[in-house]
Computed example of a mutant assay.
Amino acid sequence: MKTINTKTLAMAFASLFLFSCERNADQDLVEPMQVNQQSELVGYDPSTCNLVQSMGTGALPRHVNLIEEDGLIMTVTAQRRGHNGKYLPATEGLLLDPRDPATDLTNPFDAQMLGMFGGILTVPDETGTKANRDGGRVIMDFAPVGVVTMKTMVFTDVAAEDKGSKVELYSRNGQLLHQREIPTGAKNSAVIVSFGNIPGVAKAIVTFGDERSKVGSGAIARLQLCVDGQGRYDETRYRAVHTLWLEYTGEQPANVTVKSVQEGNSGDVLFEAKGMKPGTAFKIAGSQANPLVNPLGELLEIRTQRGEKQLIPVNADHNASLKKRYGSFRVIEARCSDYPLKLEE
């Protein structure tokens, strides 16, 4: 898991912060972190297409059921967890001011260094005006834009008593693509969680506190992602493909085996699944440490128990590009660098 506790960044950014203060001493005051869209923002991924961190405009606190920012549109609902462990009826999410001490979810250092200049998204309590402390979840639905590739989320105030907090990412068919526990930190501190490019995400559910617990709080301060079809795409395979996300599109469940093929000889089994349901997405990945050695081989060979065989070229080839579909398998995303490859129809 790639996480960064912002306390470890204090010394690294102290001199930069002091220099910035001296440089701007004779200038008009500006809002903090005006570089929020650039690489100077702590934890910023330069391959991000859509950066969501102000959570819209308007007075804070306020309720929200739709967030639109930087090319992303998502619907938002929230649910408090009842004393019996079941979730109460859905409500709107709550946006709080991270710089208001009454919010009690952030500290001034993290708010400054992570560019929390807008609202932070959380579960409202029974009054609807403060963050819920008894466990709950925020549901973000990306249906208005289709699906996204999830890169990074920033959370705040997931403390020791909130252990068991998690993020779940789902496909448009309801398949759980990825689940990640959110690391805990000091009260009011922030943590950056990197997902390493998970495409095809239609819905994200953030749960605060272990679902068997009657406590749990926290907030979402930033999303970094790419809406499907947006952002930069590499035109050619100048290096071997190191990551592929595929979706099985057949009509019946199938046993699926994926092997690497090198110089005409089948190599290792890279993936195997029995009874794969239509609409299931899966990932094939090799090491990026040495671009000259491709553990995926020259080709990927996909077979099913029905005799279907598909070959997907994954070697470096300037003159060819991958297709969007190979028989009963759709290529969701392919990468030979930090950016997804452009796919042929």
Rank of each mutant, 00 (worst) to 15 (best):
V35E: 09
A90I: 00
S213K: 05
C226F: 05
K309H: 13
A204C: 02
R222D: 01
R237T: 06
F155T: 03
N294F: 10
G200P: 01
L223Y: 12
M74A: 15
L121C: 07
V167N: 03
D26S: 12
P61F: 02
S217D: 08
S213V: 06
S189C: 03
T127K: 09
N188I: 09
P61E: 06
E40Y: 14
E308C: 00
P61V: 03
R335T: 03
A204V: 15
V331H: 02
F142V: 10
M74Y: 08
E263C: 10
P278H: 00
E272V: 11
A273P: 00
D162P: 14
L341H: 05
E161Q: 11
P199H: 02
W245T: 00
L66H: 08
D157H: 13
E272D: 08
L343N: 06
S337M: 03
S287N: 12
F155S: 08
M140Q: 09
F282M: 00
Q27T: 14
A12S: 11
P313H: 00
Q305N: 12
D338P: 00
G56P: 01
Q179C: 12
T236H: 14
S15W: 14
R172P: 01
L88W: 02
Y87V: 05
G196S: 14
V193H: 08
T57P: 04
E301A: 04
L296F: 05
R222T: 06
R23Y: 09
R137Y: 07
A90H: 04
L105S: 12
E251G: 09
Y233P: 06
V42H: 03
D26E: 11
H63Q: 14
V258L: 12
Q112T: 13
F17T: 13
F142S: 00
R306C: 09
C49E: 12
G275Y: 05
N132R: 04
G264T: 09
L343V: 06
E181A: 11
T3Y: 10
R335A: 02
D338A: 10
E247A: 12
L169A: 06
Q112Y: 15
K277F: 13
E68D: 10
K324I: 14
L270G: 10
L94I: 07
T8S: 02
K324D: 15
P253W: 07
R222P: 00
R232N: 06
C226I: 07
R239E: 10
P291V: 15
L88F: 02
I73G: 08
Q262W: 04
E22N: 01
R99D: 15
D97T: 11
I220T: 14
A102V: 07
S39W: 10
E22Y: 08
G200C: 04
S54V: 13
K163F: 11
P144H: 03
I182G: 06
E69P: 02
